[in-house]
Nucleic acid binder design. Structure first.
Lengths: 217, 217
DNA sequence: AAATTATTTGACCGTTTGGTCAGGATCAAC
DNA sequence: GTTGATCCTGACCAAACGGTCAAATAATTT
């Protein structure tokens, strides 16, 4: 009742400086962790990238592992959002097309976030392990039921829903995680917005219609 | 002519001990690099895993980077072999099915080799960059022509060959690179041989036939 | 078995790492 | 403009790092 600006719990306030610097550190850390993994990243490098002194980084995040955890948590929601939106009452083709589109968009807009997850999983998911087996598993289970329902009502071919979801994850995240390989093989410097539209068309066409010609043979 | 057991060039011989230890070190290094990336891996850990002293590891591989390079090179051929075998004169469906099968088999038999490549690419491919833009690019270009020929002769739907290849790479390597995520989401401890057969069926069905039901609607 | 070569390691070095600390600078409230 | 909290940093530390070296041990050759 005395101070209306403060939050309800004792130490819950955030200075403008605090908010700005924490964001700057998290951005820098995301890039560095994505490039070198947890073990290969150094606090010095993160500090340099955030244009701060190392002790100042430690002022906001006591340990390197806290920083790593914070980066992972910050990106979890945005990483998951597209799957959550799969609508059981929508048209299957349209829903899946939309899902692929959103996942690809995420790859284009947040490549480092995608790489953070990739390195974490590649390294055995030491931090995310529990989360994967609980929240994510439950969510995928629910969405797999949606897909199975589409199959049971004859609107989708009979495929394993889990492996379909993995296929879409793999295909869309590939363009964020393996950018150097994709650009080198294609002989480009980077992947333009137009190229991402071509990717979306190709993926949707293959996954929905398949490679074998329709209507004949 | 004096010594029949030796190789032709001066220092080209390899002791049994040498061959055995180099292999042991490379195996250990492959695992450690795959788990921690180049920067996060330590020579100590590699030595411990190979059950050797650190100086002895350096006796066989002068620098950590030499070891990393050797591990990458050792797995390049086996990683590429399946794509090389795509036969222009074969049946497209059968060739692609076979390709998917072989890539999946690689994921199952050599998961750490797959992860080595994944971490290397994720970290910007500092070592493999040149190779990707030259040898790999040429190979993929050649195989893309094969696929395009199949399309032009009406045996395959019109899709971008490059993105088709990327899709197959992504989907098959996913099961090696993201094992913890796959097992956690599926609620399994590991992926059995039977599960890999299910994966192969699912992938081939989706990629060849598509998700939308055929023959009706 | 003696001599030569190949293999192995404990001890060590200079550097980098994550993390601390005392104190200075800056800000907000009165 | 004084006060108290927040913010920032140079200097520092113990541990871990990649890498070296002399000396010991094991194989191999003669």
């Amino acid at each position: 009742m005395s101070n209306p600006r403060r939050g309800d719990s004792p130490k819950n306030s955030k200075t403008r400086i605090q908010a700005r610097n924490e964001a700057r550190i998290l951005d820098a850390a995301q890039t560095v962790f994505a490039e070198h993994g947890f073990g290969g990243a150094t606090v010095d490098r993160i500090a340099a990238r955030a244009k701060m002194s190392k002790p100042n980084v430690h002022y906001y995040f006591k340990r390197k592992s806290d920083l790593y955890l914070a980066v992972l948590m910050r990106t979890l929601d945005i990483w998951l959002a597209p799957l959550k939106d799969l609508d059981p009452d929508g048209d299957p083709a349209q829903e899946l097309r939309h899902y692929i589109s959103r996942k690809l968009h995420f790859s284009r807009e947040n490549p480092t976030a995608s790489r953070i997850f990739a390195t974490e999983i590649l390294q055995g998911a030491p931090v995310l392990e529990r989360y994967l087996g609980e929240d994510l598993r439950t969510l995928v289970e629910r969405k797999a039921k949606v897909i199975r329902h589409w199959i049971d009502t004859g609107r989708l071919a009979a495929v394993d829903p889990y492996h379909l979801i993995f296929l879409i994850w793999a295909a869309t995240q590939h363009y964020a995680d393996f950018t150097p390989q994709v650009t080198a093989v294609m002989g480009r410097e980077s992947l333009s917005k137009g190229e991402f539209e071509r990717i979306e068309d190709s993926l949707c066409k293959i996954i929905l219609d398949g490679l074998l010609p329709r209507g004949k043979a």
